[in-house]
Design a protein around this nucleic acid. Structure first.
Length: 270
DNA sequence: AGTCACCTGATT
DNA sequence: AATCAGGTGACT
């Protein structure tokens, strides 16, 4: 379930798996199509023998920096995941690509729907590719002042603005809807018609929702679940069509925006 | 701005 | 059988 918080949790999990400094001895794309428009066999050949230097997230991309100035860019799309397994021969059924270290340990890209993508770039290509992305909402760059300026220049409906990776990077359908709910912003409202006070609330809601969700996602991913239900991120509007708003009891509505479902409370979001 | 295509699995 | 799904890119 990969929006920014889940991708962040995957990256943290990989960093805890201590694969930094290891050499990738063998690469296999069980599903070559996930490299398109690149050629899977060429990625296999180019990556073999390289060392994993660094793992980072940018927007919803997982970036694996390798020795020799190359970077694997993994996009999980809807159902992708990256895991480290002790033995590549016992990987999951959904394995779409495997990066094997010495001793059979491996980094596995698993993806039920196979919509995810893995590409290989030079660092300069990567810079060019990521350049259009908006700021990271959990970085110092994302200030109220920045959001006020960006909002003034966009007539997009608020929900579509939040989901546009080139406006702000990392929000998806769930957390965009949740942030709008907590800010009391109607998802259809054009950004440039929001009052300053709403932009202030929206800015704070985005940061709070994402921070909470990162916390939950990291806990959910880490080991046997010894966390309480209360710690798990729970949605106020997403996937709650027809149910009473947890604040005002009016029925949560579902509308369609940009081909996707948007959930919101008509009482709280004006 | 909207629609479709990419895939598979879960749900109605 | 039909519809839905947390994403994105390529169309119109």
């Amino acid at each position: 379930m990969p929006e920014l918080p889940e991708v962040e949790a995957v990256c943290q999990k990989l960093n805890e798996a201590r694969i930094i400094g290891k050499r990738i001895v063998s690469v296999r794309f069980q599903r070559p199509g996930i490299a398109l428009p690149q050629v899977a066999s060429e990625i296999e050949a180019a990556v073999e023998g390289r060392i994993v230097r660094r793992i980072e997230r940018r927007a919803k991309n997982v970036l694996l920096y390798l020795s020799g100035g190359l970077v694997l860019r993994v996009h999980l799309r809807m159902t992708g995941n990256l895991i480290v397994v002790p033995d590549v021969r016992f990987g999951p059924a959904n394995a779409r690509a495997s990066f094997e270290f010495s001793g059979h340990q491996a980094l596995i890209f698993e993806d039920a729907r196979a919509l995810g993508r893995i590409h290989l770039h030079t660092t300069s290509e990567l810079r060019r590719l990521l350049a259009p992305l908006g700021p990271e909402p959990l970085s110092a760059e994302f200030t109220f002042e920045w959001l006020r300026e960006a909002a003034a220049q966009s007539r997009k409906p608020a929900k579509l603005f939040l989901m546009d990776q080139n406006s702000l990077a990392g929000l998806g359908n769930i957390y965009a809807a949740e942030a709008l709910f907590h800010a009391g912003v109607n998802p259809a409202k054009p950004m440039n018609r929001l009052r300053e006070a709403k932009i202030q609330r929206l800015h704070r809601s985005i940061v709070r929702v994402l921070n909470d969700a990162v916390q939950s996602a990291c806990k959910a991913y880490s080991g046997p679940a010894q966390f309480s239900e209360a710690e798990v991120f729970s949605c106020f509007v997403y996937d709650r069509e027809g149910d009473p708003c947890l604040v005002c009891r009016r029925k949560v509505r579902r509308i369609r925006q940009g081909g996707r479902s948007t959930y919101y409370c008509p009482g709280c979001q004006t």
